[in-house]
Design a protein around this nucleic acid. Structure first.
Length: 735
RNA sequence: GCCACCGUAGCUCAGUGGUAGAGCACUCCCUUGGUAAGGGAGAGGUCAAGGGUUCAAGUCCCUUUGGUGGCUCCA
């Protein structure tokens, strides 16, 4: 006879087992009406779930009008909507579309399905599918859960010929998969062999309506009580996926959809998507001529056009100034380095698949002309005995294996486009002796690196093949690690604050506790990890510890920002590295007059200028604060009669270092304003005969509907100068 | 890299096998106008590239190339 504890601490006792609905009814009719599901001891369940034992219970309700739905309510609605969409798709396209996996997501849901050869789900079907979804919701059929014994359930699923559901069921039952081999295969050879298993727990199915009569799906649940409770749902887009995310397994069609409590909220969400598209850095970047990607130059290679270059340059100047305050010194290094350099650092050939292929010297190419491809690669990747001995001794391991060691005359000489700046910086550190008194040595460079990203991964400025990192390497003693990490994070905080970026989080990657695949002593790791965690905490934004996410050479801190479409982008990273000193035989002289290995901290707090600017474009929707705006002021003379005065105003602003142009065209001022508005210029100065006479400018600030009125030219120059110097994110000029 | 979709003027896009279009931008002319588009004219295209089918291809087919959405990957 259950006693139920409610969220407010009150208890209710029943003299018989009760359903979630009865509990809700016992509290109030309104609550029962709004109820979508129930949380029993924190676990989300169907409203119809029978409660036999004492427990804590919370009723999950649909949101009241005008209120946001709770995550639990959205989960129930979207999980249920996935069923409705799947039914609609099968109604429109046929039952031979096999359902695989359909979970809710942050913004909606998807359903992965196998589409048989010769059939295709296309966006042309969306109208029909959406219509059917709306019908099913309007029919208000109950979601009916029933269970079937493991044996019967599996037999039934196999007879239905859907191996994905069989696989799901076997996984749910904890059985080894009889159908998933990680191999590509046409569907339909779901085994019919007799079942041999020890599973006892039943499988649950949900009928959208009456079992045996309406549409059904193997499903763990839970669901809303009936289809009308979903509110509004629709199919959104198509994509492809692999079964279990395994590219060797079957390819499935992923159908995305979303659901909201009401049509109004769904419409609002769709509207938001449209708005987000307008903020897309690729769209704005083209419109405002910020950057260009040219297929003649190559995929994933950014051409910074004049406007974008201004933004990048301002950011770099700003970052460099902050770095100087922190005691960094700036260096420049070339875009390529010898193969041996990257064999020393370990980047080659270990990461060769994500690098551009090597640049081979002419003489070597001549010598290789008779070799087989495999032999060429063997000799390109080979390492000299001397280099191997050095690295193996210093890393206390067989880092370079015997099969990679070749006689010098067999080695191929060549270069790599640099995938990272650290090897060059390591060689700069090694180029001069260092005392512990000089440490830490902080070498900073806006260093351009090249990586071979898969073509399907390229995306505007955020995923590219050539990019410039705001890179630096801090060569320090172990004791200096905490302070140096702290310094990196305070830099990030400063710059994110100035740019008004608040939606970011921090991941701290720690070593895998169950693995000994890391270099450096456990004590060192403990200290470095503690330093990372403490530094992350001090930032005051949400952060997560992620064991197993460290690099093998040290723990790291990653900065992740959310873009306007909700995608997360990793920007910067701070990584502690115990390995590089060994690899490059780096040392400093300690107080004991003996050489010691420095620890290296790699840090690129904004990742790359390309990605960072891409995210910034979306963050500001192209309306950059004045200090970053490519064009800060545009002067709009009322007519040609005022062109002379406009030139005078332009000269005064240029003398003050302001980026200004004048529109001397013969449009009317309304037209000039409209055009300038498109360019999202912070300030428009309308000047006419009145202004010329009084030495004033009539200011119109971006985002304001009206003019701010006239102000003396000198006052405007001072105001905008101070706004630019202070890097305010908001427009600051007041008349 | 894989799957799907897409590529027409500088930009945004129409064009379902029969003479390549619109708006904006650009050039010129008229207009000299005080806060989100005054009027007119002109110029601008190997319809991504290559091949094929056809009397005829922007349109249908194949290949290549680039983009988009996902998947996989991201030291």
């Amino acid at each position: 006879m259950p006693t139920i504890t409610l969220p407010d601490g009150k208890t209710k006792s029943f003299d018989h087992p009760v359903s979630g609905l009865e509990v809700a009814q016992s509290i109030g009719a309104g609550l029962a009406k709004a109820a979508l599901g129930i949380k029993i001891n924190g676990e989300l369940k169907d409203l119809a779930t029978t409660i036999n034992d004492d427990c804590t219970v919370a009723i999950v309700t649909a949101p009241k009008a005008g209120q946001a739905a709770s995550p639990d309510a959205l989960f129930l609605m979207r999980h249920s909507a996935a069923h409705v969409m799947a039914e609609a798709i099968q109604d429109v396209l046929g039952k031979d579309i096999l359902l695989a996996y359909g979970p809710p997501t942050d913004t909606g849901f998807f359903y992965d399905m196998f589409v048989p050869e010769g059939k295709k789900i296309s966006t042309d079907h969306f109208d029909a599918i959406n219509k059917r979804i709306a019908e099913i919701i309007a029919e208000d059929r109950k979601f009916c859960r029933y269970e079937q014994g493991a044996s019967d359930g599996l037999t039934r699923l196999k007879s239905e010929g859907n191996k994905y559901k069989v696989d799901n069921a076997e996984r749910a039952l904890g059985l080894p998969s009889s159908v998933y081999s990680g191999q590509k295969s046409a569907f339909a050879e779901a085994p019919t062999s007799p079942l041999r298993h020890s599973a006892t727990s039943p499988l649950s199915f949900y009928a959208t309506g009456t079992p045996g009569q309406n549409w059904e799906d193997l499903c763990r649940g839970p669901h809303v009580p009936s289809t009308a409770r979903i509110g509004a749902a629709r199919v959104l887009s198509l994509a492809s996926s692999y079964w279990h995310g395994d590219e060797n397994s079957d390819r499935l069609t992923r159908v995305y959809g979303t659901a909201f409590p009401s049509q109004a909220e769904l419409d609002q969400y769709l509207n938001q998507l449209e708005e987000a598209k307008k903020r897309d850095h690729r769209v704005i970047g083209k419109h405002l001529r910020l950057f260009h990607i040219d297929e003649t130059v190559g995929q994933g290679l950014i051409l910074w056009t004049p406007n974008g270059s201004i933004i990048r340059k301002e950011l770099q100047t700003f970052i460099a100034a902050e770095l100087r305050k922190q005691g960094y010194t700036e260096v420049f290094t070339p875009h390529i380095g010898s193969l041996e350099l990257y064999k020393t650092s370990g980047h080659f050939p270990y990461y060769k698949d994500s690098q551009f292929p090597p640049i081979i010297e002419r003489d070597s190419l001549d010598a290789l002309a008779t070799c087989s491809c495999a032999d060429v690669m063997r000799r390109v990747e080979g390492v000299s005995q001397r280099l191997a001995d050095g690295i193996n001794a210093r890393t206390h391991a067989t880092t370079i294996t015997k099969d990679r060691i070749l006689p010098d005359d067999q080695l191929v000489q060549g270069f790599m486009l640099k995938p990272m700046n650290c090897p060059h910086h390591a060689r700069i550190f090694a180029s001069a002796p260092h005392s512990y008194r000089d440490m830490p040595v902080r070498l900073a460079e806006f260093g351009t690196v090249y990586r071979w990203e898969q073509s399907g991964e390229l995306n505007g400025m955020t995923r590219v093949r050539g990019f410039t990192q705001d890179d630096a390497h801090l060569f320090c003693t172990e004791d200096q690690i905490p302070a140096e990490i702290q310094g990196c994070l305070s830099l990030v905080k400063t710059i994110f604050n100035v740019l008004g970026m608040k939606d970011y989080r921090v991941r701290v990657g720690l070593r895998d506790p169950d693995s000994n695949k890391f270099t450096g002593s456990p004590e060192s790791w403990d200290k470095a990890e503690a330093a990372c965690i403490q530094a992350a905490q001090s930032l005051g934004v949400s952060f997560s510890k992620e064991p197993g996410e460290a690099a093998f050479y040290g723990p790291k801190i990653d900065f992740v920002v959310k873009d306007v479409i909700g995608r997360e982008w990793q920007l910067g990273t701070v990584q502690v590295d115990y390995q590089m000193g060994n690899r490059f035989d780096l040392s400093y002289i300690g107080p004991d007059n003996k050489p010691h290995r420095p620890v290296v901290i790699h840090r690129a707090p904004f990742g790359s200028m390309e990605r960072f600017c891409g995210v910034l474009i979306e963050h500001f929707a192209g309306a950059f604060p004045t200090w970053l705006a490519p064009e800060q002021v545009r002067i709009l003379p009322i007519s040609e009669k005022t062109n002379d005065y406009a030139a005078q105003v332009e000269a005064a602003l240029k003398a003050a270092g302001v980026r200004v142009t004048t529109n001397t065209g013969n449009d009317r001022v309304q037209g000039k304003i409209k055009e300038a508005t498109d360019w999202k210029i912070p300030y428009l100065l309308i000047v006419g005969p009145r202004d010329a006479e009084n030495q004033t400018v009539s200011v119109r600030a971006r985002g304001t509907e009206k003019d701010l009125g006239a102000m003396p030219l000198a006052a405007f120059v001072n105001a905008i100068k101070s706004e630019i110097d202070s890097k305010h994110a908001e427009l600051g000029v007041k008349p």
